[in-house]
Write a protein that binds this DNA or RNA. Sequence first.
DNA 1: AAACTTTCGTCTAAGCATTAGACATAAGCC
DNA 2: GGCTTATGTCTAATGCTTAGACGAAAGTTT
Lengths: 394, 394
Amino acid sequence: MTVERMPASLGGATSHGHLLELIRSADGLSRQQLLSTTGMSRATLYERLDTLTRRGYIYEAEPLGSTGGRPSRKIRFQDRGRVVLALTLGQTHGTVSITDTTGRQLRSETFALEISAPADSVLLPLVEEGRKLLEQGSDETLLGIGVSLPAPVEAGTGHVKHQTTIPGWSPDSVVRAVKATWDLPLVIENDARAAALGERASDAETVVYVKVGTGIGCGIVVEGSILRGAHGSAGDIGHIRMSADGPLCRCGRHGCLAAYSSGRALRDRLGHLGLTKIDDISAAAGTGDPEVLQALSDAADVLGRALAATVTTLNPDRLVLGGQIGGLPDFVEKVSSRVLTDVVERIAEGMVVEAGHPEDLAACHGLTTLVMRKIFAPDAVDQLFADEAESAAG
Amino acid sequence: MTVERMPASLGGATSHGHLLELIRSADGLSRQQLLSTTGMSRATLYERLDTLTRRGYIYEAEPLGSTGGRPSRKIRFQDRGRVVLALTLGQTHGTVSITDTTGRQLRSETFALEISAPADSVLLPLVEEGRKLLEQGSDETLLGIGVSLPAPVEAGTGHVKHQTTIPGWSPDSVVRAVKATWDLPLVIENDARAAALGERASDAETVVYVKVGTGIGCGIVVEGSILRGAHGSAGDIGHIRMSADGPLCRCGRHGCLAAYSSGRALRDRLGHLGLTKIDDISAAAGTGDPEVLQALSDAADVLGRALAATVTTLNPDRLVLGGQIGGLPDFVEKVSSRVLTDVVERIAEGMVVEAGHPEDLAACHGLTTLVMRKIFAPDAVDQLFADEAESAAG
DNA sequence: AAACTTTCGTCTAAGCATTAGACATAAGCC
DNA sequence: GGCTTATGTCTAATGCTTAGACGAAAGTTT
């Protein structure tokens, strides 16, 4: 006799990992609902739920309203007291955050730092602060750690690629600094990419996140996954060439987007006003200084022209701007209008151009998403259960 | 007692579908090799192979060389006599091809057509020619049909999107025209996207395919899958705006890439030489007409500038040029040099810029890939087996 | 030609996960 | 208290998968 099965896509959630995934995605399902959505037998499902409960993956939450008989109880993903530590490093500041499993910040501290300093001198204070922040919580369990950097990161290993922004750091400096304190799942990602992931609303969306701070970074998320390209340089839009004879860029070429629109370029242009820091510029923009506003407008216009090409190539649902410069309302407004006029209507329509969440929050959220994915990926969970069963038997 | 299992990624090929996938990807594996790679038991594997053989999915091929004992026999995916029909429609020509399961053309015929004519008057002759070509083969089984169009196509349904190039076609005109003759798996795709897929070498690569014919099309393949974007307009680079006050484009705006570099733009520029067709231009380029060469060079230069932005955004492994204009050696050369100078070295290095296979072949290959994927996707095969088992039991 | 080696093909008993379904209990509603 | 629905546990049956045996097949080596 053959059993009626659900289409594999929806409910063939037979394994522990997929069942957990189902519970984690739906916020609270009753046993009854799980039985019908998965199509599993009572005995099997209960065994699975039992195991997942015993191992602390799920718990039984409040009852749902009764429909006449005994009320069912929600089964929930065990997120109570589970936290992720996110270290988001920028060029000049770093934030240490404790987040819940959905990426919401619970506690955080921001510090000044100099990213070009030796790796350990930058990282160890942050790690130490992480330890302190963790101690402030009661009954919290740390699940994993995420670190974002304003530099290219190798996809699989999390190694820092040798590059101008972080000259002295060895590839595995972050891994070592963190692993020395916590032997837990660790994810390292470029800051713009982490923020892009943190800004995405649904898994179906294509999001382009552009960070304009000291430099220009960009993260592209297509259907929930980060676009990396052949050598991990996808989204390196700061070096789109806007003209053959433009200003000199740090990369040695002329006319790069970053030489027009980055915070560094603005600082150079506005240096004579005594604005020596990027934050000075955003502050001056707030006061309405006309020269500053004009400079921002020019920068935004060039960026908008470049992004028009990027947007035309990718047809995203959303274009999100962030960073100290990128997030300024006037800047967003100007970029938006330029992009929307330069992009053909078919692509522009329905696309949202907007300022992102405060940068740390976005990156923090993205990092938590990555950490959670790494730990609770169905296959990873199944593997873990299989390994434990094996070692118990062997 | 617990069984040692292979890592799920590699060999956990327990189901019929995944086993078939494994056999299909490796070209000829012995039973012995299958046993060790999958980790399945002899009995189970043999049952699976038996079923797959009985249903005509696989067959036993020639023996491998002996290593001292009885030689093993290769198990092969059943591709003998299996063909796919590919209809590749351009603006002015259409090709009907019979391909083997790897996408290699076996027989083909090319016709002149006018894409702006009513759908049925374009499609029915091609379908009829397809029937004739199929009759020429002996002992061939048609697995499915692929159709590529020089117009946007809706991803899931294969419906033609209402657009300027094909004004009179109803969304489902292609589906109806084909399904009336063959009730088989059908895939409909945009021509540049099909070609992009047809050009890809490995599933790990990111490939940007740019077709310069009458218009400019572009297909982007990331890790084997086609990038579509929010409304399916990803890769619509013909309307990247190259200047605010450039020539008028058909879309009503000024300065679009297509107004500089498309075959149509070249034809307009070279009209006074009596070159009224795109093919005339490529012919004249072959004879070395200096005015034509200069026009091509200019067009290529602008395209190269636009592609530099696209390439910087995506960091592809390969940039492939195709189409009547795009495939011209001088054109490729010029685009390549412009892209490679405009793109920052980190991205340019390792990237290959090259002319694609003749356009029909690439699109044809891509279509076959899509049809084969649709039919032999592991899940689809498993579903089929499950359904049949159920109906046999019920 | 005989011995050797390796694969092939089939079969069996055992193991294990999963299932259908029974049965008792719990809990809210009328 | 009766009704209804969900929960919790248990059992026999089912059926897929496995380990492993066994012999035949088909080459190589001696």
